[in-house]
Design a protein around this nucleic acid. Structure first.
Lengths: 180, 180, 180, 180
DNA sequence: CATGAATGAGGGTTCATTCAT
DNA sequence: TATGAATGAACCCTCATTCAT
């Protein structure tokens, strides 16, 4: 099925490139024209591969989530201690902080744009993919606070970039997990 | 003499009512026409009181921030213990969680829409107003993690409302502060 | 009738100031709000003294034309030779070239804006006031060409300011008149 | 393959038709909606072919200037005497006087609307195209006065149509050129 | 498969004018 | 007499989407 392969591969490449375009300007401010131009195709072609703007975003979000979780999980040895897992994950998060901030902002952007149940479900699914991976690594006892702390750190940096004490956040994360 | 209208009062009333309209649909999806209709005035009147859409939002954000900080601070007795302060603040936050989520989302929405330095400064100023008030109440030792945790809790609820363990977050906050 | 005097004087002052405002931006680009602000009154006051924007312009044009003709005519002795008359008039025109260009442009601007017969009649009346004064000074034999040359010089300067040879124009004017 | 439309040809056709619409009401009074309706397309289509209202005008002005100069120049034999050249040019001008008046008024209209340097440069370039062609035909000795006389004649007709003695203008032109 | 021409509703904003005070 | 709040149509322009080729 060579055609299908080509089709899927082309679609993946379009999705990968779409993130930068969306992330630069935000969901609604990124026009289909700009998307087409940035991806090097015509608007018609875009509509050939995708049902519309929302569809591009949705497929992109799923694709990014799966890729991220795979990538981060692969870094952690199976026999790592809790502390090591936390440090490795935190390192990955800090190394991709800029990207994660952009993704988080974009996700909220999209959710705001589309307030229907389908959009909420999509966002929830993507979020849970990340959160479940975190729980897998740090234990099922986690009640949500560490996850909130990580997300909060990213939001904090978006709103007031100069006043975020990153080591303090790692320290806080460790204390939260230790006391469990 | 002109029509007897207190310019500043009228402006404040428009600002107060504007929040719900902005928060319902997001910054960019709320048109000036919708704003005017929702506020019961014409678009011309809106431009009589404000320089434009951005100006409405900016004035609104300042007004809300100052009002919130005053309101929350007033609830806390001067001689309250750290634990009591935390509980009172957390109670206020939970009591206004829906509003705070909407405000946070709206703020991020606006920041995305306008990426210039002026917008960033405005958002930063508003954010710091809240954060400084928190630091005033919970002590200067706070390195940012508690603040991130609170913001993260709100974001968490936006993305995955059913999976947030609120008491766990209060507990985590207490642990973070106790160990200082 | 003190009230009437005050009223007329105020109106004259408003008209005088209105020219600069109109000339700076053009007829249609000068808003009533800008006019009111520039004249130091409210829009309501403007509508108290004038029937509307067109009325302001019309009264202004009449007032300017009469003032200009009086002023330029006063400079010429009754017993001046044709050559002297021409030189004095040309000197006045060059001394007021910037103003005259602005006035000519503004007049065309207005005529374009209002294509009805009333506007045309007004413009024609104003133009003839200038042209008749010129004919009075330079003789009834003038068939229109000198007048066209002067207007053309001003238009020429508007369209291509650096390439107008002013002495050549005076020379040409003299030749046109001499050969009559 | 897209719809088969020659982009440049379609653009030229729109430009040609745009002149009448602009000339009828003036630059600023001709709205994009009116333009689109008059050209038989949607506003969206207009923006597909042109960057905006100014762009339409600018491209139109260049196109008209080049067409006019070509057309008028083609009428004059290479070995024509000065007198013949003048007569032929004057005949062309009189034959197109209505059009030229409309063009001149429109150009001034546009220059008034946009006072930036780019607009001035465009107008200057267009003006010089006409003037240089005139100089080419009537000799480099022309100091500008004949050109001013021609423009003045057109302006004169705009302001006071009934009082322009056309033969007198031709006569004056000949005298100006003879005496060189 | 792929193109880009075409649409027209809707965006933020400005306007001359009215009128209650 | 004088004010400025209020209107709402119209401004230029952008948009996601469709479809003939």
């Amino acid at each position: 099925m060579p055609k299908v392969v080509d089709h899927d591969q082309q679609r993946s490449e379009l999705l990968a490139a779409a993130f930068d375009l969306f992330a630069d300007k935000g969901y609604s401010a990124t026009s289909m024209r700009a998307l087409a131009a940035g991806l090097g195709v015509s608007t018609g072609t875009l509509y050939h591969y995708f049902a519309g703007k929302d569809d591009i975003f949705e497929q992109m979000l799923v694709w990014l989530s799966e890729r991220d979780v795979e990538e981060a999980t692969a870094l952690i040895p199976d026999d790592a201690t809790l502390r090591l897992r936390l440090e490795l994950l935190f390192t990955w998060i800090r190394g991709n902080a800029q990207y994660l901030r952009r993704l988080l902002l974009l996700t909220l952007d999209f959710q705001r744009h589309r307030s229907d149940e389908d959009a909420k479900a999509l966002v929830r699914a993507s979020t849970r993919l990340y959160r479940d991976a975190l729980n897998d690594q740090l234990g099922p006892t986690v009640g949500g606070a560490p996850w909130s702390l990580i997300q909060g750190m990213l939001v904090h940096e978006m709103l007031d970039p100069e006043n975020v004490d990153v080591p303090d956040h790692l320290d806080a994360l460790m204390r939260l997990l230790d006391s469990d």
